[in-house]
């Protein structure tokens, strides 16, 4: 519940304050957001499985975000930034979909 409240509060705060994304972070933010969404979906599924551990959730949240951003950074350094971003997005997208499918199966069985 607190997670949902935090999410809504964050979006409202962002819309009101309109923070400027630092230029150095601009390429990584979209990927980090997708990674965080993936972690969120995974956390929901784990809690429905009864296997939710907040410590695991927090560490995986931070790690996923950092790794996604690092991959994009690495791709930029190697000159394959856009391709690697696409690859990360695809993988994260697949994970989100599979997590969503698992949640759906848990809740509705059929």
């Amino acid at each position: 519940m607190i997670a949902i409240i935090g999410l809504v509060l964050g979006i409202v705060l962002g819309a009101v304050v309109q923070p400027d994304v630092p230029v150095a972070l601009q390429p990584y933010l979209p990927i980090a957001v997708v990674a965080a969404l993936d972690t969120l979906a995974g956390g929901l599924r784990a809690s429905l499985d009864g296997a939710f551990d907040s410590h695991v959730f927090i560490t995986s949240f931070l790690f996923n975000v950092l790794i996604a951003a690092f991959l994009v950074f690495l791709g930029d350094q190697l000159g394959v930034g856009s391709q690697l971003s696409t690859a990360v997005i695809v993988v994260l997208g697949i994970r989100i979909f599979s997590n969503a499918a698992a949640i759906r199966r848990l809740l509705f069985r059929s």
């Binding site: 949902i4 935090g6 809504v8 509060l9 962002g14 923070p19 965080a36």
Partner: peptide
């Protein structure tokens, strides 16, 4: 999650 919402916005 608040951070996430902030960055999404």
């Amino acid at each position: 999650c608040l951070l996430l919402g902030l960055s999404i916005a």
